[in-house]
Design a protein around this nucleic acid. Structure first.
Lengths: 204, 204
DNA sequence: TGGCATACTGGTAATACGAACAGTACAATA
DNA sequence: TATTGTACTGTTCGTATTACCAGTATGCCA
């Protein structure tokens, strides 16, 4: 953290945290004053400005309860968007593709995922990736040979094992019924890398 | 969860979560209206009342941004023990069997798991359960036919698909190389039911 | 067919809240 | 000794925000 807090500032910060944990909202200046025993709201205001200056909170001006706790308050999980069918031509994370969000604790997977992709089809069953599974994807434009990647071929988005050769790439399914897809290296668009899998047998 | 949400209500709830994650504050009715594309703030108000009635949020009246996400919708998380090799004769959750703990958000799986089991062996590969995967297990002494269960046979703990007959049970592997195991109904000890799977391709 | 819930539009009145200004006191530095 | 930063009191003003009222349209269920 930026710089050290005075005793009073620390108490005010704790007060904000308490309020956040208790009511789900940040306190108003008046509430801080009340809980801290101040007679004036401006005392709270001063402390808030100090806390912002020192980098512990962020103040959103002209918004009620516009106190945002930084770092410390950020839980240890991310709300990741679940991307399902990807509309042709749209970026994979486009709002219209997002079905819902799922909380995923940081550290659940070794690599931190950017989004989740709902698997459609059974082209990767032999790799243990089933229809309906959620795969955790880390956004990346590059990948190493042998990794399972989310790739875009023309208008479609697919999940395959990547095999890189000298001048071209092969997208390898994990199912005998499907054929490998060969792509010239410069036409291959990688959306991300497979970093985890979540399956719920009771889903849907 | 109290009761089911309509599509629109779910979207509004997501919108609130987004706002909370993004700015650290709950949105105002006007902000919800804007982000959802409503022309009227009252549309947002209606949805909020519906969400409160259904138990997803709590509204603090006469307070700005007085929207509190409740546990159920907050996606709080549990620290679940990861059970690996289970020592003979010990209860599956015994301390000595626990390797580490992993945070799992409530609601990640439809059924809330009690613990995680690190899969050893490849007897369930055809069911997409690989060696090294973590399976989420809900402790239960009973299970229905067709479910994947964690069962104890003698001193061993195994993961298999359960098939119940009149007087006996069959534990069915999902791998041609393994044989089904027949057990008299009264000798079958079920430890739990498979309710989810987590795979990290970068783990170990 | 009528009643009921969802899903909105549009507006007004009351109030919750933040911003800013003008002070006082006190301790630490320079 | 003057200067600066923290820690407040007390007040005013504007606006951000909620609450409430009166409608409309649609689909669902009995």
């Amino acid at each position: 953290m930026s710089s050290k807090l005075t005793l009073r500032q620390q108490q005010v910060l704790d007060c904000i945290r308490d309020s956040q944990a208790d009511t789900g909202m940040a306190p108003t200046r008046a509430e801080i004053a009340e809980r801290m025993g101040f007679q004036s709201k401006n005392a709270a205001s001063d402390h808030l400005r100090a806390l912002e200056r020192k980098g512990y909170i962020r103040l959103h001006s002209d918004r009620s309860r516009g106190i945002q706790l930084l770092e410390s308050s950020l839980g240890d999980e991310d709300e990741l968007p679940v991307v399902g069918k990807v509309a042709a031509g749209t970026p994979i994370e486009a709002v219209e593709n997002v079905q819902r969000t799922v909380p995923v604790p940081r550290g659940l997977f070794r690599q931190r995922p950017t989004y989740l992709l709902k698997v459609q089809g059974d082209s990767m069953v032999d790799a243990g990736i089933f229809d309906g599974d959620l795969i955790a994807v880390r956004k990346s434009e590059t990948a190493r040979s042998g990794e399972i990647v989310v790739a875009r071929i023309g208008e479609e988005v697919t999940v395959k094992t990547l095999r890189l050769n000298k001048s071209d790439a092969t997208l390898l399914p994990a199912n005998e019924d499907y054929e490998p897809i060969q792509v010239p290296a410069d036409q291959l668009i990688i959306e991300g890398v497979f970093v985890g899998l979540i399956r719920d047998p009771n889903a849907h």
